[in-house]
């Protein structure tokens, strides 16, 4: 269902619209730049919310709400995201449909607030588990809207915590949102009054937990068939494969157009989900290429995911354009490709 109501909005407004269209009912939050506006815009729209005393309470408030069947979510960034991993770890262990919008901060510590892709590993693997989370990386306003809505759908469908991983640049920039109306996600109570559920996250025997984790891994792999998403640009005859996500992915896409105009056979693999990663698509593009360049505003967090997931028989050499905590412009990518 497409509506024609084009809007001039910030990223935070787009994320809130995505949550609303997915039928989100409740938000728990604690202010932290650059995620604060997701919370305050939600509040200004007259929605139910609770401002908690810290991100720990916000995260566990979401856990309690979703157990009761309410589509609740939160937002955070950097040091707040670190605290929130306590709740996300419980959500992962108990298969709770936890949803969070994260505005990455430059790090370590309180760092900076606009450009960063340094919360990739924290989002994907920030617990004492195996990283069974759905992590989305929008590259523009429209995707921020759609992936926020999708996060609710897939969190409730697959029962894994879902993180929309964005940044201050996208959350604060204004642009045109060509609104595609999302459908409300279906939710249901995880315990009910008719059957007594006795539910644990601590196990007596190592083997019990092993079996539980292996079941989660199976479920995650099954979910990945549908949930792993990536955009491929000009990968059919690719010789130089760029790999980038989020707003850096948007810059890389423009760079591909420029370089193609000059006859260089460049293509892009842009993961839309960082967890699970669309590994078959990655393998296919990577096997064709003579070189893979991983481009990111971090010292290799995306590169780690890509190298880990790439089929071991693919021996295409890697190169890296890594700028921790700063943005990466189209021209830099173009020049980097010229340089190799």
């Amino acid at each position: 269902m497409i509506s024609n109501n084009r809007q001039f909005v910030t990223g935070a407004e787009a994320a809130v619209q995505g949550a609303l269209d997915a039928g989100a009912e409740m938000m728990y939050g604690y202010p932290i730049t650059p995620a604060t506006e997701v919370f305050t815009i939600w509040i200004k729209k007259g929605q139910k919310y609770l401002q908690t005393e810290d991100e720990i309470a916000a995260g566990f408030g979401v856990c309690g709400a979703v157990i009761a069947g309410q589509k609740a979510f939160t937002c955070s960034a950097g040091p707040g995201h670190i605290l929130m991993q306590d709740a996300i770890s419980m959500a992962e262990g108990m298969r709770l449909p936890f949803v969070a919008v994260i505005g990455q901060r430059g790090g370590p510590s309180s760092g900076t607030v606009i450009y960063s892709q340094q919360e990739v590993i924290l989002s994907c693997f920030g617990g004492n588990g195996e990283g069974h989370r759905l992590v989305y990386s929008p590259s523009n306003l429209d995707e921020l809207y759609r992936l926020t809505a999708l996060a609710f759908h897939e969190a409730w469908q697959y029962k894994f915590p879902a993180i929309v991983l964005t940044d201050g640049y996208l959350l604060k920039t204004k642009g045109i949102l060509d609104e595609t109306k999302a459908e409300p996600a279906k939710a249901h109570p995880l315990i009910n009054e008719e059957t007594f559920r006795h539910w644990r996250n601590i196990y007596n025997f190592e083997e019990e937990l092993r079996d539980e984790v292996l079941k989660m891994e199976n479920d995650f792999a099954a979910a990945a068939k549908e949930a792993a998403r990536a955009e491929e640009v000009q990968t059919d005859d690719v010789e130089i494969l760029l790999v980038a996500h989020g707003i850096v992915g948007a810059a890389a896409k423009e760079a591909v157009d420029i370089l193609r105009g000059q006859g260089i056979k460049v293509g892009l693999f842009r993961p839309i989900t960082l967890r699970p990663l669309a590994k078959e698509k990655l393998d296919k593009a990577a096997a064709k290429a003579k070189k893979i360049i991983v481009i990111e505003s971090s010292l290799g967090q995306l590169a780690r995911l890509v190298r880990d997931q790439l089929a071991p028989e693919i021996s295409t050499p890697f190169d890296y354009l890594q700028k921790p905590a700063v943005g990466i412009e189209v021209e830099e990518i173009v020049n980097f490709v010229y340089g190799i």
Binding site: L50, I56, G64
Partner: peptide
Amino acid sequence: FQTHHGRVTSTMLGFKRA
């Protein structure tokens, strides 16, 4: 259901509000 250490109050108020 079990929660995390120190987190039961926050979890239960989330449930109650829902």
